[in-house]
């Protein structure tokens, strides 16, 4: 059994913020690539949300390391066996893509209409690898935790998927919270599917833990798990989206609940491996 790495609040926030940025970005990119009329707005908002969030990430990581300059040691080499090494480079790449995507969003509006299409096409081209990077950023932290010898995490292959699904919902929530009109209603379906799917992955995850699942189900973390992750993060959003139709209020409520659930999920996963 490995020792406790004492990964702190900074890491919880990074997991959350990074997931949100990744989610927002790949949703934006997918919207950019495949969306219909309203989706360009989703893309624009997504790109816009992703960049600042992803720029916060290295700050959080650096705070956790304690000494700013040492963050750069991450880039001494690229080590494929180390999810953290690959993740660091991916984070760098993802930040770059987020930056360019956002620049291109802004550029699309500034340039002459005849060149706007070119800009959009360039942005769409970038969205393909960008999406892949987004998925990577959303999931590598889960893979990283699996590649340890801590309780709950060690050897577990389901944290990555859990984080991806959760990144989708928090990413969507971040976009949904953006004050813009007219609104995009496709999120209702998105939320319904993701929450349902997340519940399924969560089940598989707990199943894979065997007896260790008790930390979530019955241990001291149980209230938070049942209340925040299952209740606020999955059940309520699902029910709201299923039964309450239309209106900004339910939409906002859903988004907030999803964020709470997403944060709690990451917090609990991080804590359970360090208890």
């Amino acid at each position: 059994m490995g020792k406790n790495p004492a990964w702190s609040w900074y890491i919880v926030w990074y997991f959350f913020v990074g997931g949100m940025a990744a989610g927002a970005y790949f949703l934006a990119a997918l919207a950019d690539l495949f969306g219909r009329e309203r989706t360009p707005a989703v893309a624009r908002i997504g790109y816009t949300v992703a960049l600042p969030l992803i720029l916060v990430s290295p700050v959080l990581l650096t705070l956790d390391l304690g000494m700013p300059l040492r963050t750069f040691y991450m880039f001494r080499l690229l080590k494929v066996s180390s999810p953290m090494s690959v993740g660091s480079w991916a984070l760098l790449g993802f930040s770059l893509f987020s930056l360019i995507s956002l620049v291109l969003v802004l550029a699309e509006r500034r340039v002459a209409p005849d060149r706007a299409l070119g800009v959009r096409q360039l942005r769409r081209a970038l969205a393909v690898p960008g999406t892949l990077l987004g998925f990577f950023i959303a999931s590598y932290t889960g893979v990283l935790l699996g590649a340890t010898n801590r309780p709950v995490w060690g050897g577990n292959a389901w944290i990555g998927p859990l984080f991806i699904v959760s990144a989708t919902s928090v990413g969507a929530a971040a976009i949904a919270l953006w004050p813009v009109r007219p609104r995009f209603t496709g999120f209702r379906r998105l939320d319904l599917i993701t929450t349902a799917f997340e519940a399924l992955v969560l089940l598989v995850f707990l199943q894979s833990l065997g007896a260790a699942a008790a930390v979530f189900l019955t241990g001291s973390l149980a209230p938070l798990f049942w209340g925040a992750v299952v209740g606020a993060g999955l059940a309520l959003p699902f029910l709201i989206q299923l039964f309450v139709r239309g209106g900004r209020a339910p939409e906002l409520a859903t988004a907030v609940l999803l964020l709470v659930g997403g944060f709690a999920l990451r917090y609990l996963v991080l804590l359970s491996g360090q208890a």
């Binding site: 009329e37 998925f135 590598y140 389901w158 990555g160 609104r183 496709g186 999120f187």
Partner: peptide
Amino acid sequence: TSVLASVVMGVTALVAFRGRGGKGE
């Protein structure tokens, strides 16, 4: 598993973005 989940989420997004609601309000 992460790739699989990514695919599922990608498809989900497509369903969301190309479905009826995709048109707007």
